[in-house]
Design a binder for these strands. Structure first.
Length: 460
DNA sequence: CGGCTTTGACCGGCGC
DNA sequence: GCGCCGGTCAAAGCCG
């Protein structure tokens, strides 16, 4: 019987810096430690007792019952030997006790090292996350600038075709123009609303821009999916604010606005297809101004990316579009034959992602419709033994089939890492995006990618 | 009682 | 200028 098999119903490790690592095990599974909370901080962590272990061990040896009670209080008790206090039941010998102490200390050292490794891992991931976020923002700013330059040229050439890069799609979770709720709309003209078409920017330097944006058209992303439900579940919270009968379609069109945050500008229209009532067309407009739940990030990033590409002019063909959309979005978990189309007849630039393609139906969950990423995907991540850096992630770290082969200690680390990751929604969102990107790259690599350079750019 | 849905009215864009 | 149409508002009603 090893030390870890000792009876330790609720063992708690208190590290030197106040971390508290509760260790529990499931019933009928005495040889496993199932949960090790390496990341949660104990508010009641005492500096006087930075590390303590209470272990009771029952051992049957040569017919004699032995009970070992170890009360290890490192650096706290004057009765400690090498920082440990022991109450060992007779007839356990001193040699046996010393031996068990040594094993215990070795285990503690091992846990400490693993703890340090994990914390270093998390800190590196977070640093990388911040770096990537900054990098994305910089790219978006430069992208917008170049788009504005391009637009000025377009406006000079043909003032009638003034298509400006809409502010809504500049960045996911980024507010780029004043957002107000319905009540504020009445008193604030800085709103892009049909009733406030003459909205003004605070800076007088924006006068030219206002003139151009007066004719600005907003981009939309339309998603076609088969669903019996009245609305596909995309992870966001919506409130219906209107319903109209649209021309040429006997099915009414419903209007929803996002209610996850006050003043969120995102709206969507839901309408059944006239030709096929099982097809639900959901049209999204705008970008959320609030953190999204994990279930919503895939959809939001996809629609945002699609709209950005649509408006930036980086999409020159449907194939190119498909490639872009399957590179780093929710669609990356689908085969790359999802059909997309651009509409020039719609009142706004609209991109349609058609998930009803018969060849892809087998991959699309049947109603109620859900998008691919969910929390139960994360435990299948095989954490590497070395520090994790998002930019270095590859598919081998996420091979679910290899997961069954990992050792129990790795599973314990997995549980701890999962707990830490799921604790931070922003971190989770970034991780999900990264995983989506990786899976997409992996699928294309397996299926034969046409544009490796683009993939490299995405990774960079 | 607060939040949501329903639904008729209203507004602005656009084509004729 | 007029009518059509898409989109939104807001009062009323519903629901948990």
């Amino acid at each position: 019987m090893s030390i870890m098999e000792a009876r330790c119903e609720n063992m708690v490790l208190n590290s030197f810096d106040g971390h508290k690592f509760p260790i529990t095990r499931h019933e009928n599974e005495s040889s496993k430690i199932d949960e090790m909370d390496f990341f949660s901080r104990s508010s009641s962590g005492s500096l006087k007792n930075p590390l303590s272990i209470d272990v009771k061990e029952e051992e049957q040896q040569d017919g004699a019952h032995q009970e070992l009670q170890l009360n290890l209080n490192v650096g706290s008790s004057p009765n400690t030997t090498n920082g440990a206090k022991m109450n060992v039941g007779s007839p356990c010998t001193n040699n046996q006790t010393t031996h068990k102490m040594a094993i215990l200390q070795a285990q503690l050292e091992k846990m400490k090292r693993e703890n340090e490794g994990l914390r270093s891992m998390v800190s590196q991931v977070k640093e990388r996350y911040v770096f990537l976020q900054k990098h994305i923002q910089e790219n978006i700013i430069s992208h917008e600038t170049s788009e504005n330059i391009k637009m000025n040229e377009v406006v000079k050439e043909d003032t009638k075709q003034s298509l400006l890069f809409p502010l809504e799609f500049n960045n996911l979770n980024q507010i780029t123009k004043p957002e107000v709720d319905n009540n504020m709309m009445k008193i604030d003209s800085n709103v892009d609303s049909p009733h406030n078409k003459d909205f003004k920017f605070n800076s007088p330097r924006d006068g030219d821009r206002v003139a151009v944006e007066a004719t600005m058209r907003r981009a939309r992303v339309s998603v076609r999916a088969r669903s019996e439900a009245s609305m596909i579940s995309d992870g966001c919270q919506w409130r219906k604010y209107g319903q109209k009968m649209a021309k040429g379609n006997p099915c009414p069109r419903a209007y929803y606005r996002c209610t996850m945050a006050v003043g969120c500008p995102v709206r969507k229209q839901v309408q059944r297809c006239a030709e096929d009532r099982t097809v639900l067309t959901t049209t999204y407009e705008g970008t959320h101004n609030h953190p999204l739940p994990q279930a919503a990030t895939a959809m939001a990033s996809t629609t945002s990316a699609a709209a950005s590409m649509l408006l930036s002019g980086s999409i020159s063909s449907s194939n190119n579009l498909n490639h872009h959309l399957t590179s780093g979005s929710m669609l990356s978990s689908y085969p790359p034959n999802i059909t997309t189309s651009l509409s020039s007849t719609a009142p706004f630039p609209t991109i349609t992602l058609d998930l009803t393609n018969p060849s892809t139906n087998q991959h699309i969950p049947q109603p109620p419709f859900h998008f691919p990423f969910s929390t139960n995907m994360l435990p299948n991540i095989n954490l590497p033994n070395r520090p994790l850096v998002l930019g270095q992630l590859s598919s081998q770290h996420f091979n679910a089939t290899k997961f069954a082969d990992v050792q129990s200690s790795e599973q314990e680390l997995m549980s701890a890492a999962t707990a830490a990751v799921t604790a931070d929604p922003n971190f989770m969102a970034a991780l999900v995006a990264a995983i989506g990107s990786i899976i997409g790259n992996d699928q294309r690599n397996n299926g034969g990618s046409k544009n490796e350079n683009d993939n490299d750019n995405m990774r960079n």
